[in-house]
Design a protein around this nucleic acid. Sequence first.
DNA 1: TTAGGGTTAG
Length: 459
Amino acid sequence: MLKYGRSLSTKLLNICIASMCKAQQLMKSETVIIDGIRLGVLPDVFTYNTLIDAYCRFVSIDAGYSVLHRMKKAGIAPDVISYNSLIAGAARKCLLSRALDLFEEMLQSGIRPDVWSFNILMHCLFKLGKPDEANRIFQDVILSSVDPCPTAFNIVINGLCKSGYTSNALMLFRNLQKHGFVPQLYTYNILLNGLCKAGKLRAARGILVELRDSGHQPDAITYTTVMKYCFRYRQFHRGLEILSEMRSEGYTFDGFAYCTVIAALIKIGMIKEAEEIIEQMQRSGIEPDVVAYNTLINLYCKQGRVGDALKLLDEIEKSGLESDAYTHTIIIDGLCKAGDIEGARRHLNYMNTLGFGFNLVAINCLIDALGKEGQIDQALKLFESMEVKDAFTYTILVHNLCKARRFLTASKLLMSCLKCGFKTLRVTQRAVLDGLRDSGYTNEARKLQSKIRLARFIH
DNA sequence: TTAGGGTTAG
């Protein structure tokens, strides 16, 4: 500690603590604080707030909360930032009731919430799929004396997009503009992503033009967003054009951009090109995170190198990173595609032991593999046992039933899929209809056809 | 303190 000298002030102490907390060196921070006190430099509310935030991020809310007690004991009154840090910690982990309790405790302590307190709560509610409650808070903020900041608008516009209310988001955006709100590049990016995701490409194009006209320069996020959706909507040429425009504009590729491009190339079967970009990513010195690893594992699986994919999983676990649900579903799909159903089942069990809950994607892969291996009854059994299904589950099974020439069962399944309101692919519908007609089930084909028309009309 | 882009199955 002596290396900091005797001129150490609280301000300098806070700078040290902030950088150590950022580097997750919490024990070291504590030692520095103790040394500081010995030298007569007392921590202040800023010091404790930095610690609360770090403990909430890297340890637990309880650990953050105990810092709150410590500061009170030291005679320093917590402020709105102390509580916001705790509420944000709870919100990050989606612990809504804990966040609300902390909010209540803040009010009880006579601390007035600020716009950030509301922002954090709104974001948490949107994340938990409670857009109505988030919206209620937003209305309260608008009507109250709390001055909303651009971030509040960004959170609501983003939340509405993520909850599927893209039109409402666009409407809010326009209304805010009428009342003098000048959208930030951040706002444009949120809206652009929301509109593209919802397939509203015309509106997205309009927003992109508006973004440029308003004097903003598209940034790496704008480019990555547009590029991703070009690939998704199979405009590969345009996607690659944007890729080179992004480069010529001088944007350095980050992990997000690399993974977007690599995943798109893998998906369209341009494996060699994907390999080249992966090599570029590895050479660029970007520290791979779990998504980058997942992208690489996906490439190995698509090349049939499941063994190498498993080795990479080992590497993730040894490097201190945590694998996620994507990692394991990619591997399960890889095993399935390699025909190793038992291996896939074993990996699914392993996934469970790691604490991952039910995973629809993994089960869907397993159903497909069972069908492809000629175990269609096993696939049906698995299907029946599922409490949650989606459009993929139905489509996968319907295709496999068609391949097994069990068109009546396929037809029934397709009808219940339509009844659930899931969208089905034209190619799936055609496979069943053609199969029914070829097998002489013309009545059933007619019935299915009218259900398909009805579904198209309703949805 | 908070908010935007990346990875999986038909």
